[in-house]
Design a protein around this nucleic acid. Structure first.
Lengths: 402, 402
DNA sequence: TCCTATAAGTTTGATGCCTAAACTTATAGC
DNA sequence: GCTATAAGTTTAGGCATCAAACTTATAGGA
């Protein structure tokens, strides 16, 4: 959105820095001259901007490119592998994950602790998180890289402007100032911290991974059902940052009651727990084991398992058709547990969507499974930190060069 | 697709021109110095930009302001009442509306023809539309004002990038190049034409009228049910421009069959026709008369009418709660026929939403009725033309001064 | 081996827009 | 009519871009 801020020459440089850096982000390695042609800037301007970014260690020069014909060879430019890194943290219900990611999106270090984050107080959990953050910062220092930002994924509603976690039902948290607490506890005065919903971060990880679509809704079903909506390569967060809540779309007015007060909510009808129950594999084993059991039964064409999955697909289709109609999205990405069930979910879901979506005639709906595993959210959180630099490098460059 | 464009000094002027003009758009009339303070630009810059815009007849100077204390009085600046006008056209199912609107949003001329646009071929209808456009252009010439752009509202899905009407079920049109045809038939080579969905234009009219919210979903129910989604003061169109289709969200899986192939679609359950049927006032009179009849019965507390309205409110609540959860919107605006039924719809709808929307605890959902009448869509269409100039005046200014 | 054509990257001067600060104009209060 | 204050204009300077000239590097042919 156009900010009500006046523009000056610095604004121009800022805009063009981002333009140039995003062209450099192409891993095939382009020369200054190619970047100039691609962005529409002159070689002189590109040179000047690139020099600044090399100085700030965002960009490095590679070997001269091999090209047929006469003429001097250009020097290929790449994102600096030892440039600023992004630190990602995910506070799960029963685990704590951290990772360090470089500018190219490569994971350079990762940690995963099993931890019950539900029983102890938020303060205790956050002090544990702060410790994990300090460990990661120490590792970054050992690697000789600067940490340019941090992303924190939490399973709840986060007000994007303030970074305050409003509520996380599955953690039992309410009104926790995650950003403030972590900044304080881990001594992060210098590092910008972004707090967000794990479903949103997972969707962003999907966006940044490989060459997928730029417009999609990413649905992940673990304990709740969360959706991350990506429009034109950016996250759609809603007005307060509470967007993407599809778990309580009503799918069946005569369905089972939901703790939220309604009936037949998607989460109750198509959530992991309900699929397992209908398939007859719900007992007191670990969730991981139960899903493996379900997958085995599906592979063996167990009738109840197949019926449960098909029913969930149908309900998902009802809910997602509303989403897709409303936002006019061409693609649905299945993440989390749904990604593992994708072989059985995709076809009935696609059929349901095609039937219900008005515009499917002109732009058919694609349903694909995420290729990212369970660590999508941490990667997205870490990635969002480096992406913040890539999307607007000039403030970072100015700060480093100062 | 937004192609990344390089920025130069002209970009700066462009940005700041918009900034200044939007500050001037405040009808209370500010001086150059006040604009400077408000925008953060210097007086010199504001003066220079304002001079250009006065030259292009976008801005006029008013009387010197009265202000207590010593010092020279500033000259108030206003949007030029005889600056460029927007031409709005609405192709309804059984009428054709046109209007001319000035930069301030004031309607300066309007025409309304009853016309059956359903039976004749699209080509015939469009030639009739072109004639109405030429009439409006002639009137603009007589008034001595330039027409800066045209908006065309149609009751169907429009691909925003191309201006092609993909389908309009209630007109029986498919794949009609409305923009191309009208440009050709009415000789509009110089004038930019925006084609859009009437529900979207109605939502924009609501946005621009008065001091309403900047984030809302506007629902209007006539023959179909359309929604216009406004986020942060801008229309959310979806990826292809097909966004806002809420008519076929499923509200009740056991509900009546819908021509779209599904069952229990919102349109079938809460549309005008179904409300009238349940209230027992559906016969072969004109729709207008039927609605008046319904309103009378509601005023007289007719039990069937009240029940029908309450049931529609409940279904709307189910569908809109999904929308509001997903997009995290704080406000629902009822337009069209729903606006007239608002006294009976608002309360049950609000109750339904409050119950179903997860974030309502932190940001309660407001339900309000539109104050615009049946001409919201034409006004929005005309307004979108002048808003395009207000949002980015520099290209217009440059073209006029050249 | 040297020359020529070609292309990458740098240097230089011009342009355009913004800013700061000085300057001019206008007005109230004394 | 003088002074203080505020609006609006003028002028000098800064900054980022661009165009064009210039330097550097390379292939291919004489």
């Amino acid at each position: 959105m156009s900010s009500p801020q006046p523009a000056g020459q610095h604004t121009v440089r800022r805009h063009n820095s981002a333009l140039v850096l995003n062209a450099i982000a192409d891993p095939s390695g382009h020369s200054r001259a190619e970047i100039a042609a691609r962005t529409g800037l002159t070689k002189a301007t590109v040179s000047s901007l690139v020099d600044r970014m090399i100085g700030a260690n965002l960009v490095v020069e590679g070997a001269a490119a091999v090209r047929p014909g006469p003429g001097r060879r250009g020097t290929a430019l790449y994102l600096a592998p030892d440039g600023p890194h992004g630190l990602g943290v995910e506070i799960g219900v029963d685990y704590l994950a951290t990772c360090l990611i470089d500018l190219t999106g490569e994971v350079r270090a990762r940690w995963l602790h099993s931890a019950d984050n539900r029983t102890p107080s938020p303060a205790r959990v956050l002090s544990r998180v702060a410790k994990a953050v300090r460990t990661a910062l120490a590792e970054a220092e050992r690697m000789g890289v600067r940490v340019g930002g941090m992303g924190v994924a939490v399973p709840g509603l986060v007000e994007s402007a303030t970074g305050i976690l409003r509520v996380a039902p599955n953690l039992g948290w309410r009104e926790v100032d995650v950003r403030g607490e972590l900044s304080r506890r881990a001594g992060l005065d210098e590092i910008p911290v972004i707090v967000g919903n794990e479903a949103n971060f997972a969707a962003l990880a999907e966006l940044w991974q490989g060459t997928g679509p730029r417009d999609f809704v990413h649905v992940s079903g673990e304990i709740g059902i969360g959706a991350g909506i990506v429009v034109d390569g950016g996250l759609f967060e809603g007005v307060f940052g509470f967007g993407g809540e599809i778990g309580h779309i009503m799918v069946d007015p005569r369905g089972p009651a939901c703790p939220c007060g309604s009936r037949g909510c998607l989460e109750r009808v198509a959530g992991q727990e309900e699929i397992l129950r209908q398939a007859g594999v719900l007992d007191d084993r670990e969730p991981e084991e139960l899903v493996t059991d379900l997958l085995e039964r599906l592979a063996n064409r167990d009738r109840k398992a197949l019926a449960a999955t098909r029913s969930a697909a149908k309900s998902l289709g009802v809910a997602l058709s509303g989403v897709v109609n409303l936002l006019d999205l061409p693609t649905v990405v299945l993440g989390g547990t749904y990604a593992r069930l994708a072989p059985w979910l995709c076809d009935p879901l696609r059929a349901e969507l095609t039937q219900r979506v008005v515009s499917s005639e002109w732009s058919p709906i694609e349903v694909i499974a995420s290729t990212l595993g369970s660590e999508a959210a941490v990667h997205g959180a870490a990635g969002s930190a480096v992406r913040a630099i890539l999307a607007d490098p000039d403030p970072y460059v100015t700060a480093v060069l100062a």
